[in-house]
């Protein structure tokens, strides 16, 4: 099944109570944060705590991501070294401005994979786009490395750079969201929407999550476990969508058995993208806990 990143849960890297249990909330990914949630004087402590936890904790099937400190900080290099050696799956680079930033991270990761005895290419990358230049460079960033699996919007820094603030309608993020989804789709990587910071406002969160899904985002970053089931509910297919997807897959399978080159369903032609989308939807339904194998 394809990797899902509907929910990427941020966990403060210097909080042992949260780091040890991060896998129990059912998010698709955990993002251990070494950046904004950690005070400068505690960067070393957070790095060692996440390193030690990764070395000894079974996080199950949840994808393990780390947000390292930015390339221009004194902590960046050691963050990356510790995390590659600890077996991290994905490194999220904050404040990515252009493809050169990803190239620099990739070079470091490649060298560390060799010295740490990890298979080449096993560490994947994610870029957080947080400023206007980053948004304008979205496609170049998204295509800058074979390791790159997703680009993400980070709205708080973005709105500050744009001399505006976040609103409930999100109009100030419309251009950035659109460009990120376009770039991600053109590059064949995932698009991850920004966090919703008002943890008490479930309705506002749901509204934003629905908008993100409709725009084509693959998921959102979240800052509290309470947002995870809400998000998965938004991204779950409807029963009708699932029924239709299963019929598409069945029609494709039948056409293959019969050696037919052209597949049709209800008088309409079905081509490869429609079949791929149907398979993706069935995978998503399964991950969402829906009963996929039921006969109609």
């Amino acid at each position: 099944m394809a990797t899902l990143r509907r929910s990427m849960l941020f966990v403060p890297g210097n909080n042992p109570a949260l780091v040890k249990d991060a896998q129990i909330y059912g998010s698709d990914s955990i993002i251990f944060d070494l950046e904004d949630s950690v005070a400068p004087a505690e960067k070393d402590a957070a790095r060692l705590l996440v390193w030690s936890s990764l070395r000894s904790t079974d996080y199950g099937r949840v994808e393990k991501v780390v947000r390292v400190n930015g390339i221009d900080t004194p902590w960046f290099r050691e963050d990356v070294e510790a995390m590659v050696r600890a077996g991290i799956e994905v490194i999220r680079l904050p404040k990515t401005e252009g493809p050169a930033d990803i190239a620099r991270l990739e070079e470091l990761v490649g060298a560390l994979e060799r010295t740490a005895g990890r298979p080449s290419g096993s560490v994947r990358l994610m870029a957080a786009l947080e400023g206007p230049l980053a948004i304008l460079n979205a496609y170049e960033i998204a295509t800058s490395s074979k390791r790159l699996v997703a680009i993400a919007l980070s709205a708080e820094d973005f709105v500050t750079s744009m001399r505006t603030t976040r609103s409930s309608e999100g109009v100030e993020l419309a251009e950035a969201r659109g460009r990120i989804v376009l770039a991600a789709r053109a590059a064949g990587v995932m698009a991850i929407d920004t966090v919703f910071t008002d943890v008490a406002d479930s309705e506002g969160f749901l509204r934003e999550a629905r908008l993100a899904k409709q725009l084509g985002f693959d998921g959102k970053s979240v800052i509290t476990p309470a947002q995870i089931p809400l998000l998965h509910g938004v991204f779950a297919p409807t029963k009708e969508e699932l029924r239709r997807a299963r019929r598409v897959i069945a029609a494709a399978a039948e056409a293959k058995v019969r050696g037919l080159g052209v597949i049709s369903l209800d008088g309409k032609m079905i081509d490869r993208p429609i079949i791929d989308r149907a398979q993706g939807l069935v995978d998503l339904a399964r991950a969402s806990g829906m009963r996929v194998e039921d006969k109609e």
Binding site: P16, K20, D44, A45, R47, L48, L49, W51, S52, S53, R55, S56, T57, E78, A82
Partner: peptide, 23 residues
């Protein structure tokens, strides 16, 4: 605390007490 937390905190304190910035 879990063992991994003890380990991390002991190591952090030692590195600080040794005046080392890099592990």
């Amino acid at each position: 605390a879990l063992d991994c937390t003890i380990r991390a905190r002991v190591m952090t304190a030692c590195l600080r007490a040794a005046g080392l910035e890099k592990a």
